[in-house]
Amino acid sequence: MSGALLLLADGRFPAGGHAHSGGAEAAVKAGLVHDADGLAAFLTGRLHTTGLTAAGLAAAAAGGFDPAGLDEAADARTPSPALRATSRRLGRQLLRAARVCWPDPVLDGLAAAYPGGAHQSVVLGLAARAAALAPADAALAAAHESVNGPATACTRLLGLDPYQVVAVLARLAPELDLVAEAATRAAAEAVRRQDAQPLPAASAPLLDLFAERHNAWKVRLFAS
């Protein structure tokens, strides 16, 4: 079923991600990322924090964990109101595309229950499930999304050599696999216990600060 996974994880999948930088725009503006090495360090931190957390939520959703419980877990794992709003907006946009690609009453129910949008990672997991993908696929797609978006954003923001940027992503790929595996294991445990506690809750102080700071800017290239 890897065809559906490639589609879901493709940066061109029309789910709104292109307008978001995942904190990269604020990190660039703060002078903390200006070259490929800085990008690699940024992506490593993001992958192992919000990437891991999103991967766990996505895998749990794909594994059949109650979406309402996951929505609460995602809210609690996202203390920044700006990031909660972004996650729900992107969740809503992703759901729109997923319902057309993989019609499923569960997705319809999610849209009805969360008119303002469910969290992106939860939608991703349920979309994967609707596409008959496994929790591990959902985790991988979420982990990939957590680094792919900011990498593309940095290509645009910094005019980085695109070959260097994809090379950074390629070097990160083995870690991406590990993060997805860890998230999948934790999600299986959460599903077994019907308790979100085992799901990763990894966070990064600066990503929260960046999100709030960026949200207050009047002039910016990316929505987040």
């Binding site: 061109r12 029309p14 789910a15 709104g16 991600g17 292109h18 307008a19 978001h20 930088s21 907006r89 809503r92 946009q93 729109r96 595309a97 954003a153 645009r156 923001l157 910016r220 290239l221 990316f222 929505a223």
Partner: peptide
């Protein structure tokens, strides 16, 4: 609507934000 450096993407390739 914010378009993330790519105004044409938001009206053609990924119209989700505009539809919303």
């Amino acid at each position: 609507v914010e378009t993330g450096c790519c105004p044409h993407t938001a009206i053609r390739d990924d119209i989700s934000a505009n539809l919303e």
